[in-house]
Design a protein around this nucleic acid. Structure first.
Lengths: 356, 356
DNA sequence: CGCTGTTACTTAACCGGTTCGGCAAGCAGG
DNA sequence: CCTGCTTGCCGAACCGGTTAAGTAACAGCG
């Protein structure tokens, strides 16, 4: 079956290739009658524009790029990414734009990918996630002239357009919630400090905690379940130990819950837990986890819209997407009046090595 | 900064465009000296081939397509997909192939995507996941002449090349494990019956169970945590109830564990649980879940290799990737000698409505 | 020496669109 | 009636590669 090209349409409609192009692209230069005829023929022949040809001449690829610089392992764990990608896709599909998704293992590889894409004219613009402090990608994208929308706080974006959520407000809500329940010693199990969003949330944590008069502890992790579990173990071993823990993602919160229960702690009586993202994970644990919920799919969609309008000539502004919403579930409650030590017989705790 | 094209290389190397193309593509027609000179100039100028131009003339897009016909919601829940995509990417990146990833919400949209891709010459080949019984995609891909590698059993692939894992062997291992522990009443919480792999595992479940002389129960779900939880609740309410449950993914297994614990059941004393995929989820619960483990990233890589060699002219064969590996953790153990009923005071169970 | 065959290149067509310059027809204005 | 402007369309160049066809130089060989 031979490919249908505009040449064929031109032949059948009795006009030139150029006229067909004008007609199909809704551009002036053809009469209404001719345009209608061309469109009808194109419809009949089921013409589909050839992306490569269009890209070659128009210097547009109709593709957006998204690089994820995480290990494949992390990606399987983090419900965030595929949801975000789904949101991006949902917008692109309508516009018949494509998404070039690249999974790399380091920031350097991500930079190399941008260079390559820019040189190949592979993408019209990129979406940048996981902003770092003084992020090297920003300077590179600026130098390459590659249109970009960053996912993260304007403080991190250095003037590039970004879409962000209000971390301070979310942290106020989270800490306000546990403070209202009566908690005074509150810990935060954060992600890696090199991530800008983590830093911003760290600051918001201290600001909000100070104004509420709380006793705060901060632990950094690599966002993994293992480190979330380890951090929780350490926090519970401390004296005095926190009565509420706020996690920076939901995976660590679930791992933390598991550790606490393994040590015999009853959630929420002995310990209140709050997760940051709110995926299904938070609803399948027992008790279910209180979380700072967030519409990740909508976030991806919003970012994509911003990139599209940026290419349409919109000014490169930053946009507040929305604030996370506190969803209270059974993992949060008032602290025990006289905080108990974890001295119930642990049911699944590893046996101490020095047992006779 | 002007784009570097082969025309510029030709000018600087003092040869024609055509000669440059031969040199850069390692094709005969140029002397070793000229080839070296051209390559040096290309290197100096940091030439990168323009994908669109190459695609237009060579009628190759150097892109593989992958359509995921699931709701964005499901995708955020299932650790499988992003891991698989990561595995695919890892192979493609080396070859500087790209991946066109499309997330759609129905099978019809997936079919439409293939049609579009074929018409646009958008992709050189596709990877097809989530095979159905009598899958309509197979006939379409054959008609479109779109090279494809299917992820699933040869019985489902209708002659198209596929990469699969041995479901019967895995099911034998899983049922053998619980049977060896002494379990006799075993349930399977399966995915939707329209998925071919589910059907195959269902059959393997009955075959293996019959030969082991087990008393089997099968429940179908939509793979979601909610339905996994509901199925578990129903199974535990039955009389006699199963002493071991095998779930078709890890999300449902975690949800099932949570439900069982909520009803006061002690895992594994009262109930043995086995998960099918083995993501991080299985290791962060308490107790940790026994699972039929699987290298999903490697699976994605293998499938991609097969598609690459298919395009290189390899015969369209089916390949066994590997068999899932039983990873025994704390969620499996021998059944109680005299099975207890779930009559401990549930700690978080919803209060019965008829309580005075 | 002339014929043939190979090698190393050049030229030009081509992929399927976009876009610019130009031309003819139609119309208004002087 | 002539000029000038607009409208509608054509033809051709162009994007940046690949590749078939053509050609010149040279080697082998009878």
């Amino acid at each position: 079956m031979p490919r249908v090209t505009i040449k064929e349409i031109a032949r059948r409609a009795g006009v030139s290739k150029g006229a067909v192009s004008y007609a199909l692209n809704n551009q002036p230069g053809v009469s209404a009658a001719t345009r209608a005829r061309v469109l009808r023929v194109a419809e009949e022949l089921e013409w589909v524009p050839n992306r490569a040809a269009r890209q070659l001449s128009a210097a547009r690829s109709e593709t957006f790029g998204l690089v994820l610089a995480r290990t494949a392992q992390t990606l399987t764990e983090e419900p965030f990414y595929l949801g975000f990608v789904g949101g991006v896709e949902s917008v692109l599909a309508d516009r018949s734009y494509a998404l070039a998704l690249q999974v790399v293992s380091s920031l350097d590889e991500e930079l190399a990918t941008y260079r390559k894409w820019a040189a190949e004219r592979r993408v019209d613009g990129v979406i940048v996630v996981d902003l770092r402090m003084a992020d090297p990608r920003i300077a590179l994208l600026r130098k390459l002239g590659l249109p970009a929308v960053l996912v993260g706080d304007p403080q991190l974006a250095d003037g590039l357009p970004c879409v962000w959520t209000d971390a301070a407000a979310a942290m106020n809500a989270a800490l306000g919630h546990v403070a209202a329940l009566g908690h005074r010693r509150v810990a935060r199990v954060a992600g890696p400090p090199e991530y800008g969003d983590v830093w911003i949330r760290d600051r918001a944590f201290f600001n909000a905690g100070r104004s509420l008069g709380l006793d705060l502890t901060l632990v950094h992790t690599d966002y993994s379940a293992d480190q979330g579990a380890a951090a929780t173990r350490d926090l519970l071993a401390a004296d005095p130990r926190p009565t509420a823990v706020i996690y920076d993602n939901d995976l660590m919160a679930v791992a933390g819950l598991s550790v606490a229960q393994g040590l015999g702690a009853v959630v929420p009586d002995d310990l209140t837990l709050v997760a940051w993202d709110d995926s299904t994970l938070c609803r399948i644990t027992h008790p279910r986890l209180t979380a700072m919920s967030h519409n990740i799919i909508g976030y991806g969609a919003e970012v994509t819209h911003r990139l599209l309008s940026l290419l349409d000539g919109a000014p490169p502004e930053s946009h507040l997407y929305s604030t996370r919403l506190l969803v209270v579930r059974e993992s949060s409650g008032p602290p025990a009046v006289r905080p108990t030590r974890c001295d119930r017989p642990p049911r699944y705790a590893p046996r101490p090595h020095h047992t006779p």
